[in-house]
Protein backbone atom coordinates (compact mmCIF):
# COMPACT_ATOMS: atom_id res chain seq x y z
CA UNK A 1 0.00 0.00 0.00
CA UNK A 2 1.58 3.30 -1.01
CA UNK A 3 2.01 5.77 1.80
CA UNK A 4 1.96 9.44 1.09
CA UNK A 5 5.46 10.64 2.08
CA UNK A 6 5.98 13.25 4.76
CA UNK A 7 8.16 16.26 4.18
CA UNK A 8 11.51 16.35 5.90
CA UNK A 9 10.32 18.59 8.74
CA UNK A 10 7.52 16.31 9.84
CA UNK A 11 8.19 13.24 11.96
CA UNK A 12 4.67 12.08 12.72
CA UNK A 13 1.37 12.70 10.98
CA UNK A 14 -1.69 11.33 12.72
CA UNK A 15 -4.91 11.48 10.71
CA UNK A 16 -8.39 10.51 11.83
CA UNK A 17 -7.05 8.21 14.53
CA UNK A 18 -9.65 6.28 16.55
CA UNK A 19 -9.51 3.54 19.13
CA UNK A 20 -12.52 1.75 20.55
CA UNK A 21 -12.17 -0.70 23.41
CA UNK A 22 -14.60 -3.54 24.03
CA UNK A 23 -17.88 -3.54 22.17
CA UNK A 24 -18.71 -6.89 20.66
CA UNK A 25 -18.85 -9.93 22.94
CA UNK A 26 -15.25 -10.92 23.55
CA UNK A 27 -15.57 -14.62 24.00
CA UNK A 28 -17.74 -17.58 24.44
CA UNK A 29 -20.53 -17.08 26.99
CA UNK A 30 -19.35 -13.57 27.90
CA UNK A 31 -21.60 -10.62 28.12
CA UNK A 32 -21.51 -7.73 25.78
CA UNK A 33 -20.18 -4.41 27.03
CA UNK A 34 -20.69 -0.99 25.44
CA UNK A 35 -17.70 0.17 23.39
CA UNK A 36 -15.51 2.81 25.00
CA UNK A 37 -14.48 5.25 22.33
CA UNK A 38 -11.20 6.17 23.97
CA UNK A 39 -9.88 8.07 20.98
CA UNK A 40 -12.07 9.58 18.32
CA UNK A 41 -10.95 11.07 15.02
CA UNK A 42 -7.71 12.63 16.25
CA UNK A 43 -5.44 14.41 13.76
CA UNK A 44 -2.21 16.30 14.32
CA UNK A 45 1.40 16.42 13.18
CA UNK A 46 4.64 16.53 15.11
CA UNK A 47 7.62 18.29 13.59
CA UNK A 48 11.12 16.91 13.87
CA UNK A 49 12.91 18.17 16.99
CA UNK A 50 9.89 19.78 18.58
CA UNK A 51 8.04 18.97 21.78
CA UNK A 52 4.38 18.37 21.23
CA UNK A 53 2.35 18.61 24.43
CA UNK A 54 -0.86 16.66 24.83
CA UNK A 55 -3.01 17.89 27.72
CA UNK A 56 -6.30 16.73 29.03
CA UNK A 57 -8.07 15.53 32.13
CA UNK A 58 -8.43 11.90 33.15
CA UNK A 59 -10.27 9.82 30.58
CA UNK A 60 -9.47 12.24 27.77
CA UNK A 61 -7.60 9.54 25.86
CA UNK A 62 -4.23 11.31 25.79
CA UNK A 63 -2.29 8.25 26.99
CA UNK A 64 -4.11 6.04 24.51
CA UNK A 65 -3.02 8.32 21.67
CA UNK A 66 0.63 7.87 22.70
CA UNK A 67 0.26 4.12 22.99
CA UNK A 68 -1.38 3.95 19.59
CA UNK A 69 1.46 5.94 18.06
CA UNK A 70 3.94 3.44 19.51
CA UNK A 71 1.59 0.65 18.47
CA UNK A 72 1.18 -0.81 21.92
CA UNK A 73 -2.44 -1.15 20.83
CA UNK A 74 -3.98 -1.96 17.49
CA UNK A 75 -5.57 0.95 15.70
CA UNK A 76 -9.35 0.90 15.16
CA UNK A 77 -9.33 3.48 12.37
CA UNK A 78 -7.13 6.18 10.93
CA UNK A 79 -3.54 6.51 9.88
CA UNK A 80 -0.26 7.19 11.69
CA UNK A 81 2.53 8.10 9.32
CA UNK A 82 6.08 8.14 10.60
CA UNK A 83 9.17 9.37 8.78
CA UNK A 84 11.95 6.88 9.35
CA UNK A 85 15.54 7.90 9.90
CA UNK A 86 16.32 6.82 6.32
CA UNK A 87 13.81 9.38 5.04
CA UNK A 88 11.11 6.90 4.02
CA UNK A 89 7.61 7.30 5.34
CA UNK A 90 5.88 4.28 6.88
CA UNK A 91 2.29 3.69 7.85
CA UNK A 92 2.34 2.53 11.48
CA UNK A 93 -1.37 1.82 11.77
CA UNK A 94 -1.07 -1.17 9.46
CA UNK A 95 2.59 -2.08 10.03
CA UNK A 96 3.32 -5.78 10.48
CA UNK A 97 5.18 -7.41 13.32
CA UNK A 98 8.62 -7.50 11.72
CA UNK A 99 8.36 -3.95 10.45
CA UNK A 100 7.31 -2.72 13.90
CA UNK A 101 10.13 -4.59 15.58
CA UNK A 102 12.65 -2.69 13.47
CA UNK A 103 10.85 0.61 14.04
CA UNK A 104 10.86 0.23 17.81
CA UNK A 105 14.48 1.33 17.79
CA UNK A 106 13.39 4.75 16.61
CA UNK A 107 10.60 5.44 19.08
CA UNK A 108 10.50 4.92 22.81
CA UNK A 109 8.41 5.70 25.83
CA UNK A 110 8.94 7.04 29.34
CA UNK A 111 6.30 5.98 31.81
CA UNK A 112 4.43 7.82 34.54
CA UNK A 113 5.02 5.43 37.39
CA UNK A 114 8.74 5.05 38.06
CA UNK A 115 7.95 2.09 40.34
CA UNK A 116 5.97 -0.20 38.09
CA UNK A 117 7.77 0.55 34.84
CA UNK A 118 11.06 -1.04 35.90
CA UNK A 119 11.19 -4.79 36.45
CA UNK A 120 12.20 -5.04 40.14
CA UNK A 121 14.02 -8.31 39.51
CA UNK A 122 16.57 -6.86 37.09
CA UNK A 123 19.72 -4.88 37.83
CA UNK A 124 20.40 -1.53 36.23
CA UNK A 125 22.77 -3.22 33.81
CA UNK A 126 20.06 -5.65 32.71
CA UNK A 127 17.38 -2.97 32.56
CA UNK A 128 19.29 -0.38 30.57
CA UNK A 129 21.09 -3.05 28.56
CA UNK A 130 17.93 -4.92 27.60
CA UNK A 131 17.13 -2.88 24.46
CA UNK A 132 20.75 -3.25 23.30
CA UNK A 133 20.55 -7.01 23.75
CA UNK A 134 17.19 -7.35 22.07
CA UNK A 135 18.31 -5.51 18.98
CA UNK A 136 21.71 -7.11 18.98
CA UNK A 137 23.46 -3.76 19.19
CA UNK A 138 25.96 -4.67 21.87
CA UNK A 139 26.89 -7.46 24.22
CA UNK A 140 29.51 -8.36 26.76
CA UNK A 141 31.90 -5.63 27.82
CA UNK A 142 30.71 -3.37 25.02
CA UNK A 143 27.24 -3.54 26.52
CA UNK A 144 28.59 -2.67 29.95
CA UNK A 145 30.42 0.34 28.57
CA UNK A 146 27.38 1.55 26.73
CA UNK A 147 25.21 1.17 29.85
CA UNK A 148 27.77 3.06 31.92
CA UNK A 149 27.73 5.83 29.35
CA UNK A 150 23.95 5.99 29.37
CA UNK A 151 23.84 6.12 33.16
CA UNK A 152 26.34 8.95 33.17
CA UNK A 153 24.23 10.73 30.60
CA UNK A 154 21.20 10.82 32.90
CA UNK A 155 23.26 11.78 35.94
CA UNK A 156 23.57 8.38 37.63
CA UNK A 157 26.89 6.89 38.69
CA UNK A 158 28.00 3.96 36.49
CA UNK A 159 28.98 2.05 39.64
CA UNK A 160 25.27 1.72 40.34
CA UNK A 161 24.80 -0.76 37.51
CA UNK A 162 24.86 -3.76 39.84
CA UNK A 163 22.02 -2.36 41.93
CA UNK A 164 18.36 -3.16 41.68
CA UNK A 165 15.67 -0.51 41.21
CA UNK A 166 14.58 -0.70 44.87
CA UNK A 167 17.80 1.14 45.76
CA UNK A 168 16.63 4.32 44.05
CA UNK A 169 14.22 7.16 44.73
CA UNK A 170 11.33 7.98 42.41
CA UNK A 171 13.25 10.69 40.56
CA UNK A 172 16.26 8.45 40.05
CA UNK A 173 14.10 5.59 38.80
CA UNK A 174 12.60 7.95 36.30
CA UNK A 175 16.13 8.65 35.10
CA UNK A 176 16.77 4.92 34.72
CA UNK A 177 13.68 4.83 32.53
CA UNK A 178 15.06 7.73 30.50
CA UNK A 179 18.41 5.94 30.08
CA UNK A 180 16.61 2.82 28.88
CA UNK A 181 14.57 4.84 26.41
CA UNK A 182 17.72 6.50 25.06
CA UNK A 183 19.70 3.28 24.67
CA UNK A 184 18.87 2.74 21.01
CA UNK A 185 19.30 6.38 19.96
CA UNK A 186 15.63 6.89 19.14
CA UNK A 187 14.34 9.85 17.18
CA UNK A 188 11.12 10.06 19.14
CA UNK A 189 10.21 9.66 22.81
CA UNK A 190 6.71 9.70 24.22
CA UNK A 191 6.73 10.81 27.86
CA UNK A 192 3.48 9.77 29.52
CA UNK A 193 3.00 11.96 32.61
CA UNK A 194 6.72 11.50 33.14
CA UNK A 195 7.04 13.90 36.05
CA UNK A 196 3.53 13.88 37.50
CA UNK A 197 4.37 11.46 40.29
CA UNK A 198 7.46 13.38 41.41
CA UNK A 199 7.95 16.17 43.93
CA UNK A 200 8.31 19.62 42.40
CA UNK A 201 12.04 20.03 42.96
CA UNK A 202 12.76 16.55 41.54
CA UNK A 203 10.37 17.11 38.64
CA UNK A 204 12.26 20.28 37.75
CA UNK A 205 15.56 18.40 37.68
CA UNK A 206 14.17 15.74 35.37
CA UNK A 207 12.50 18.26 33.07
CA UNK A 208 15.81 20.06 32.68
CA UNK A 209 17.51 16.76 31.96
CA UNK A 210 14.95 15.91 29.29
CA UNK A 211 15.45 19.28 27.65
CA UNK A 212 19.23 18.91 27.70
CA UNK A 213 18.98 15.49 26.10
CA UNK A 214 16.63 16.84 23.47
CA UNK A 215 19.17 19.47 22.55
CA UNK A 216 22.05 17.02 22.56
CA UNK A 217 20.42 14.32 20.45
CA UNK A 218 17.85 16.28 18.48
CA UNK A 219 15.02 14.29 20.05
CA UNK A 220 11.35 14.81 19.30
CA UNK A 221 9.06 14.55 22.33
CA UNK A 222 5.43 13.83 22.79
CA UNK A 223 4.83 15.17 26.29
CA UNK A 224 1.62 14.01 27.89
CA UNK A 225 0.47 15.68 31.07
CA UNK A 226 -2.47 17.14 32.92
CA UNK A 227 -0.27 19.94 34.29
CA UNK A 228 -0.82 23.02 32.17
CA UNK A 229 2.03 25.02 33.66
CA UNK A 230 4.45 22.21 32.87
CA UNK A 231 3.16 21.74 29.33
CA UNK A 232 3.49 25.45 28.72
CA UNK A 233 7.08 25.34 29.89
CA UNK A 234 8.21 22.41 27.80
CA UNK A 235 6.10 22.35 24.61
CA UNK A 236 6.40 24.12 21.30
CA UNK A 237 2.92 23.12 20.27
CA UNK A 238 0.03 21.73 22.28
CA UNK A 239 -3.01 19.58 21.65
CA UNK A 240 -5.91 19.75 24.11
CA UNK A 241 -7.98 16.60 24.48
CA UNK A 242 -11.44 16.09 25.94
CA UNK A 243 -13.39 12.79 26.00
CA UNK A 244 -11.26 11.20 23.28
CA UNK A 245 -11.36 14.21 20.98
CA UNK A 246 -8.74 16.74 20.12
CA UNK A 247 -10.38 20.09 20.88
CA UNK A 248 -7.59 22.44 19.95
CA UNK A 249 -4.13 22.24 18.40
CA UNK A 250 -1.93 25.26 18.35
CA UNK A 251 1.51 26.66 19.05
CA UNK A 252 2.01 27.27 22.78
CA UNK A 253 2.19 31.07 22.98
CA UNK A 254 -0.88 31.90 20.92
CA UNK A 255 -2.89 29.21 22.68
CA UNK A 256 -2.09 30.54 26.12
CA UNK A 257 -2.57 34.13 24.95
CA UNK A 258 -5.84 33.60 23.18
CA UNK A 259 -7.39 30.12 23.21
CA UNK A 260 -9.71 29.17 20.38
CA UNK A 261 -11.80 26.61 22.21
CA UNK A 262 -13.98 27.31 25.28
CA UNK A 263 -12.63 24.15 26.95
CA UNK A 264 -9.05 25.42 26.67
CA UNK A 265 -10.19 28.70 28.18
CA UNK A 266 -11.83 26.87 31.09
CA UNK A 267 -8.74 24.73 31.68
CA UNK A 268 -6.45 27.74 31.76
CA UNK A 269 -8.77 29.52 34.09
CA UNK A 270 -9.05 26.56 36.46
CA UNK A 271 -5.32 26.29 37.19
CA UNK A 272 -4.64 27.80 40.60
CA UNK A 273 -1.82 30.31 40.31
CA UNK A 274 1.00 30.62 42.82
CA UNK A 275 0.11 34.27 43.14
CA UNK A 276 -2.46 35.06 45.85
CA UNK A 277 -3.13 38.63 44.77
CA UNK A 278 -3.77 37.70 41.16
CA UNK A 279 -6.03 34.82 42.22
CA UNK A 280 -8.23 37.22 44.14
CA UNK A 281 -8.54 39.64 41.27
CA UNK A 282 -9.24 36.94 38.69
CA UNK A 283 -12.71 35.70 37.89
CA UNK A 284 -12.49 31.99 37.27
CA UNK A 285 -14.73 30.08 34.94
CA UNK A 286 -16.42 27.35 36.93
CA UNK A 287 -17.48 24.56 34.62
CA UNK A 288 -20.80 23.00 35.51
CA UNK A 289 -21.13 19.27 35.93
CA UNK A 290 -18.66 16.51 35.30
CA UNK A 291 -16.58 15.02 32.52
CA UNK A 292 -18.85 12.71 30.50
CA UNK A 293 -18.29 8.98 30.31
CA UNK A 294 -16.35 7.98 27.17
CA UNK A 295 -18.70 5.04 26.58
CA UNK A 296 -21.67 7.40 26.48
CA UNK A 297 -20.58 10.84 25.27
CA UNK A 298 -23.21 13.55 24.75
CA UNK A 299 -24.65 14.12 21.28
CA UNK A 300 -23.29 16.98 19.26
CA UNK A 301 -20.21 18.69 20.64
CA UNK A 302 -18.85 16.57 23.53
CA UNK A 303 -18.28 19.73 25.55
CA UNK A 304 -21.68 21.36 25.04
CA UNK A 305 -23.33 20.38 28.37
CA UNK A 306 -20.61 22.25 30.26
CA UNK A 307 -19.86 24.99 27.77
CA UNK A 308 -20.81 28.52 28.81
CA UNK A 309 -21.14 29.55 25.15
CA UNK A 310 -23.21 26.59 23.91
CA UNK A 311 -25.91 27.30 21.31
CA UNK A 312 -28.51 25.01 19.74
CA UNK A 313 -26.19 23.89 16.99
CA UNK A 314 -23.73 22.55 19.57
CA UNK A 315 -26.33 20.08 20.86
CA UNK A 316 -27.18 18.82 17.43
CA UNK A 317 -23.97 18.72 15.42
CA UNK A 318 -20.48 17.65 16.32
CA UNK A 319 -18.02 20.24 14.98
CA UNK A 320 -14.99 19.26 12.91
CA UNK A 321 -11.42 20.08 13.86
CA UNK A 322 -10.73 22.97 11.49
CA UNK A 323 -8.07 25.54 10.91
CA UNK A 324 -9.59 28.63 12.51
CA UNK A 325 -6.47 30.75 12.31
CA UNK A 326 -3.29 30.08 10.35
CA UNK A 327 -1.67 27.00 11.88
CA UNK A 328 -4.24 26.84 14.67
CA UNK A 329 -7.00 24.26 14.81
CA UNK A 330 -10.15 24.13 16.90
CA UNK A 331 -13.06 21.73 17.16
CA UNK A 332 -15.68 24.40 17.88
CA UNK A 333 -18.55 25.75 15.81
CA UNK A 334 -17.62 29.25 16.86
CA UNK A 335 -13.85 29.01 16.68
CA UNK A 336 -12.44 32.44 16.03
CA UNK A 337 -15.77 34.13 16.69
CA UNK A 338 -15.72 34.04 20.49
CA UNK A 339 -13.36 36.27 22.38
CA UNK A 340 -11.80 33.97 24.94
CA UNK A 341 -9.43 34.83 27.79
CA UNK A 342 -5.98 33.32 27.94
CA UNK A 343 -3.50 32.93 30.75
CA UNK A 344 -1.47 36.07 30.26
Amino acid sequence: MPVEPLNSETLFAVTGLSKHFGGAAKGWLQKEKPAVKAVNDVSFTIARGETFGLVGESGSGKSTVARLMLRAYDVTAGSIRFRRSDGNTVELASAGKAELQALRRQMQMIFQDPYSSLNPRMTLLELVGEPLLIHGVASGSELEDRVAELLRLVGLRPEFRGRYPHAFSGGQRQRIGIARALALNPAFIAADEAVSALDVSVAAQNINLMQDLQEQFGLTYLFITHDLSMVQHISNRIGVMYVGRLMEVSATEPMFAEPLHPYTEALLSAVPQPDPKRNRGRKRIMLKGEIPDASNPPKGCAFHPRCPYAKDICKAEEPELREAKPGRFSRCHFAGELSLTGAY
Binding site: A72, R104, F111, N119, E130, P131, I134, R180, L184
Partner: peptide, 22 residues
Protein backbone atom coordinates in the same frame (compact mmCIF):
# COMPACT_ATOMS: atom_id res chain seq x y z
CA UNK B 1 -0.98 -5.17 32.71
CA UNK B 2 2.30 -4.22 34.40
CA UNK B 3 4.06 -1.21 32.96
CA UNK B 4 7.37 -3.02 32.78
CA UNK B 5 5.89 -5.71 30.57
CA UNK B 6 4.56 -3.03 28.25
CA UNK B 7 7.96 -1.33 28.41
CA UNK B 8 9.66 -4.56 27.33
CA UNK B 9 7.18 -4.95 24.50
CA UNK B 10 7.86 -1.39 23.33
CA UNK B 11 11.58 -2.13 23.40
CA UNK B 12 10.88 -4.81 20.86
CA UNK B 13 11.21 -7.82 23.15
CA UNK B 14 9.77 -11.04 21.73
CA UNK B 15 6.84 -12.75 23.42
CA UNK B 16 9.20 -15.53 24.48
CA UNK B 17 11.57 -13.07 26.13
CA UNK B 18 8.73 -11.25 27.84
CA UNK B 19 7.42 -14.48 29.30
CA UNK B 20 10.79 -15.90 30.32
CA UNK B 21 12.57 -12.75 31.50
CA UNK B 22 9.73 -10.64 32.83
Amino acid sequence: GEDYVLAARLLGASEKRIIIKH
